[in-house]
Amino acid sequence: MPRALLLLTSLTIIGVIVGLYLALGYAGTEIEQGDVQRIFYVHMPAFFGAFVAFSATTIGGILYLRTNNVKWDTLALAGVEVGLVLALINLTTGAIWARPIWNTWWNWDPRLTAEAVMVLTYAAYLMLRTGIENAEQRRRFAAVFGIFAIATAVITLVIPRIVEATIHPVVIAQAETAAETTAQGGFELAATPGVGVALGFNMLIWALLVPITLIWHRIRLENTAERIRAMKIRMMES
């Protein structure tokens, strides 16, 4: 393993531990929601982590179409896998938070629906990828799919700001946004001590270090798989 990746992995592990301490021990308990609000320190950064990973897929797709270099396709694939894991963490922790706060596990709220569509879109990316035999065709198709699929992530991100009929709280926004008229479960960042520090740190870890580290590991795995595929072809040809 490259020294830089080893260092990054160590930093990420330490960061996750410190982030957990900040979320569970340092940040105060939100007065109206109780302890379950602490899920938020993973829930929201996990979405941004997924967004970063899916952005890597888009960038990988664009660069593959421009250069035909396989390494960009590998980046795109790694981005989807890592992004899906983080999006699933975001989706499930959201449902767990919603049970005591909204009194339901799931609601067909615009943001929740948009996120479900996003997860299904990227799951379809992986499924469709396996269905195309020709490698060149597969990469080209995946690149185009990955470029367009980012729209689902962007919509998920902005939808509570543009649709009034949402109960999903907008955390980082002006207090007067229209969405807040119906939002439930929101809270003021400054109202509880330690929230800003815990959120900022966990954003750095879950939205940057975690996806970058995992994508790097996934790329190395794919490179190994590619090397073995090449060995097999050489053997068959000889």
Partner: peptide
């Protein structure tokens, strides 16, 4: 309005690190 919902927090952490 301030319930003891620590069990949901625990479930959230189990799911997070379980998936990861």
């Amino acid at each position: 309005v301030t319930p003891d919902n620590g069990s949901y927090l625990l479930l959230g952490l189990v799911v997070t690190f379980g998936l990861m």
